[in-house]
Design a protein around this nucleic acid. Structure first.
Length: 613
DNA sequence: GAATCTGTTGGATAC
DNA sequence: CGTATCCAACAGATT
């Protein structure tokens, strides 16, 4: 075919280095070549995207656009402010397009969207070329090699991945980029429905990004946060391929760090510098290629003279987990992001469960407030006012920086779900979705299911203490004092349990430990919202019961509500009232707020039930 | 099919 | 201060 006129559609691959799809597009020898990003109302309104993640995305787009212009000063990244489903059919005509090329995306919504675009291309006689590149292995292929089952353990990935083949070496960036064709557009843009807008609370003003398809200055420029209606970003982490490659260089230069990295041994309390690579947001936006990361690390490991670490704890092991979650999502689709209708997620009668539209089988974005107490705990967790400084510091760091260490995520996730509040993991996942700059649905949903012991992981008796766990990493409480400054003057021995500080110490530290944390008051830090050990025991009993009942999210009983009949005992309650919660509370003796001691009765009963089975 | 081992990242206690 | 052991006990992989 002569004179190809090609649109390259950038999506989750905001880079020039190692892009198999971009290479395929340029290999067509296009006569005219438009590097395009299309705004997606799903992302703008129907996904929770906080201002820090927007900033990171805009950074990536600006950097990429500059890099394209460096290769061809007539070209840039053309930002089209219309939904791809309605835009492309018009673009195909207007620009007489012959080829559309993009990187494969196995997110549930992306699959639906791309099907619509592919069909439109077919009708317009446009050839579509799709290349896999977001993960180490194509997620659909990974599932196939895993006997057509979702990848639910790392060993499955380690077995299935190599069956596909070796991870390819990165492709060098292009040396030149063809001219773009005419960019004149003579059609009216279609503006999407703006309601509901899940991000309305973080907008200072309404979103203006759909007012004109080519942007306010008619130049297809990358929008500003202002155009999107958002306030300034608060995070110090910035996006873009240039930065990502510099960060990778710095990591690789430290051979010992690169070759001996073991995730479980990295400190979640380190913040200057951080203990891990901070490359996850770059992998999400594609400002760094996963194969670039993999091979740069692997080459160091292969040449390392000392004792190198191994997957899954090593640096490359982290990438395997990402492929595992992508494989699970590719197989399970939308249901992977929720409990109900999810065949691989255990049903636990958490508080604040999601509302579900049974016609579409999808969560609606709202949830049932089955317990005012749980709702209060959820709000205090979200805004870092639980009265547990370790939890509060992490949640405040998350909100401010858009990033917390993986083990920090474990701590707050365990606390919200199976090890404290007994609140649905979906509530926590939504907060992470909004605030994390490295949020991607597969990894976020997967990690929340892991931590809540509803999939991937099941040892619910291993519970993170908000007091003991941080002590292992930061005895002085330096991390807490950074993000919870009202505790700055407090003696280290009380830093994780400030409610134990005598009045004299509180005075000396110029902080009062009082109140319920519903609002933030000057010089005041709240009392803990519950006795942790007491809650821990209640939750573990609840988990034991729920495991014994053994429902999964796609069980008719889980869907139609008849599960309640199976939960009428003394475990942490069904979502409509804790029928016999007092029985359990009586069995937990609280010794002057110091620690809870489980009495014999509880243990013996638990055992007799399991033996009876 | 049963028994045993292993699983990226727990906590408390003893030495 | 590091390491071993128990706690009470899940599920997937391996034998």
């Amino acid at each position: 075919m002569g004179n190809p006129r090609v649109i390259y559609w950038f999506r989750t691959d905001l880079r020039l280095h190692d892009s198999p799809a971009l290479k395929a597009a340029l290999d067509l020898n296009p006569e005219e070549f438009w590097p395009v990003w299309t705004w997606d109302p799903r992302y703008v309104y129907r996904a929770r995207v906080g201002t820090n993640r927007w900033q990171f995305l805009l950074d990536c787009q600006n950097d990429l656009s500059k890099s394209i212009t460096k290769l061809n000063k007539k070209s840039k990244l053309f930002l089209m402010r219309e939904a791809p489903q309605t835009l492309f059919p018009k673009l195909f005509k207007a620009w007489k397009i012959t080829h559309l090329v993009f990187e494969k995306d196995t997110d549930a919504y992306a699959k639906d969207r791309d099907e619509v675009v592919k069909k439109a291309a077919e009708e317009a006689g446009v050839e579509v070329i799709i290349k896999s590149g977001r993960t180490l292995w194509d997620s659909d292929e990974l599932v196939k090699k895993n006997h057509n089952k979702p990848t639910m353990s790392i060993s499955q990935v380690q077995a299935a991945g190599p069956k596909i083949g070796k991870i390819s070496r990165p492709i060098p960036p292009p040396k030149s980029i063809p001219d773009p064709g005419d960019t004149k557009l003579d059609f009216e843009p279609q503006r999407p429905e703006q309601n509901p807008d899940l991000n309305s609370s973080s907008r200072l003003q309404g979103d203006k990004s759909y007012e004109r398809i080519s942007g306010p200055n008619d130049d297809f420029a990358v929008p500003t946060l202002e155009e999107l209606g958002f306030a300034r970003a608060t995070s110090s982490h910035r996006g873009g391929e240039t930065i990502a490659l510099q960060m990778l260089d710095r990591i690789i230069a430290d051979e010992q760090y690169t070759a001996t990295f073991e995730k479980p041994n990295t400190a979640p309390t380190a913040f200057e510098p951080q203990a891990t690579t901070l490359l996850s947001p770059h992998l999400h936006f594609g400002s760094l290629s996963i194969r670039e990361f993999y091979w740069r690390v692997q080459d160091v490991v292969d040449n390392y003279s000392g004792k190198a670490s191994h997957p899954p704890a090593s640096l490359t092991g982290q990438l395997l987990f990402r492929d595992m979650y992508f494989g699970a999502q590719a197989a399970l689709g939308y249901s992977f992001g929720q409990t109900l209708y999810n065949s691989h997620c255990r049903f636990i009668p958490w508080h604040l469960p999601s509302k579900v539209d049974h016609k579409t089988k999808l969560v609606t974005g709202e949830y049932h407030v089955d317990s005012p107490q749980a709702e209060e705990w959820f709000q205090r967790w979200k805004y870092g006012r639980t009265g547990f400084p370790w939890i509060d510091a992490l949640m405040r760091q998350l909100r401010q920086e858009g990033w917390i260490h993986h083990l920090g995520r474990h701590a707050v996730a365990c606390f919200l779900t199976r090890g404290g509040c007994y609140i649905s993991w979906e509530r926590g996942a939504e907060v992470f979705e909004e605030w994390l700059i490295d949020h991607e649905t597969a990894c976020n949903a997967g990690n929340w299911q892991w931590l809540s012991c509803t999939a991937f992981f099941a040892q619910f008796f291993r519970c993170y203490s908000p007091i003991a766990f941080p002590k292992k990493w930061d005895k002085e409480g330096i991390f807490v004092k950074r993000y919870v400054p009202e505790l700055k003057g407090l003696d280290a021995k009380y830093i994780y349990e400030p409610w134990k500080a005598p009045m004299a110490d509180q005075k000396k530290a110029k902080v009062r430990i009082q109140g319920d944390g519903k609002e933030q008051l000057e010089g005041v830090y709240p009392k803990p919202m519950f006795d942790f050990n007491e809650r821990r025991n209640i939750c573990i009993e609840g988990m034991k019961k729920a495991y014994k009942v053994g429902l999964y999210g796609d069980d008719p009983k889980a869907i139609d509500g008849t599960w309640r009949k199976l939960f009428d005992d003394d475990a942490e309650g069904p979502t409509e009232g804790n029928t016999n919660i007092m029985v359990l509370l009586k069995r937990t003796r609280v010794v002057r707020g110091k620690k809870a001691v489980k009495l014999k009765g509880a243990t013996e009963k638990g055992r007799s039930v399991s033996e009876a089975k």
